[in-house]
Design a protein around this nucleic acid. Structure first.
Length: 233
DNA sequence: CCCTGATTCGC
DNA sequence: GCGAATCAGG
């Protein structure tokens, strides 16, 4: 299989939707997930939460993140081919300095332990009043500067009108994967009819997906419109 | 073991 | 440019 424009578009789309490389691979068919990842990188699609790569800038070293943290890890640059079997870089890491004692608790014990002190690392649940403002907690003090955006918090559009439509998550080998609408739009969904056996689409959409090459003169003008056709803005 | 994405490197 | 092999974390 080669990377046609259509397949690249689909790759971009699905990758952008957060599907895994494996899912994209067998959605496209004829490629491995490695191929998908490789292509994605070459396209510059890059950077999705990788289990392997630290996606945060948090201190990677167990050592103290003190101000005097200088050594930007003398990276072992690519070395030309060596006769000896290449040593794993992990062993080359310089010995980290002995860990200092854990940081003392910044909160003095003398402080009056207010009941249910809000903690930064814990979500604070508060109710939303009419109009979308945040209700204050019982003991809470008013913020001197009210937070700018009093946006109402809504659940991330679960399924208003697409409740009975086929979502991406429900795709399987037996239902038509023909996309209707545009990805990212609220009513985007898939056909969902039973497939024409052996094909990813139902009989009707197979008719659109697979069209015999016709002689130029009587080929009908409208091109196939996967993904609901080109965007119009 | 399975999964994941990243990277390398021969083609 | 491609993708299998490999790596490495969850």
């Amino acid at each position: 299989m080669s990377w046609t424009d259509e397949r690249i578009d689909k790759l971009k789309s699905l990758w952008g939707q957060g599907l895994t490389a494996s899912q994209i691979a067998d959605e496209l068919g004829g490629v491995s997930r490695n191929a998908v990842i490789g292509k994605a990188h070459r396209l510059g699609l890059e950077s999705r939460p990788s289990p392997v790569k630290g996606n945060d800038d948090a201190a990677p070293a167990p050592a103290a993140p003190k101000e005097a943290a200088p050594p930007p890890a003398p990276k072992v640059e690519k070395v030309e081919k060596v006769e000896a079997p290449r040593p794993r870089p992990v062993a080359a890491a310089p010995e980290p300095p002995p860990a200092p004692p854990p940081r003392p608790d910044p909160v003095p014990a003398a402080a009056a332990p207010a009941p249910a002190e809000p903690r930064a690392d814990q979500p604070v649940y508060r109710s939303i009043g009419p109009g979308g403002f945040q209700r204050q907690q019982p003991g809470e003090q008013q913020s001197p500067i009210p937070p700018a955006p009093p946006r109402r918090l809504v659940p991330a559009k679960p399924a208003p009108e697409i409740a009975d439509k086929t979502s991406l998550l429900e795709l399987n080998d037996r239902i038509c994967k023909w996309p209707l609408g545009h990805p990212g739009e609220p009513d985007f969904h898939f056909c969902g009819d039973p497939v024409n056996p052996g094909f990813p689409y139902c009989v009707q959409h197979c008719g659109q997906a697979y069209q015999a090459q016709m002689p130029r003169r009587d080929r009908r003008p409208p091109p196939p419109l996967p993904y609901g056709g080109p965007r119009v803005r």
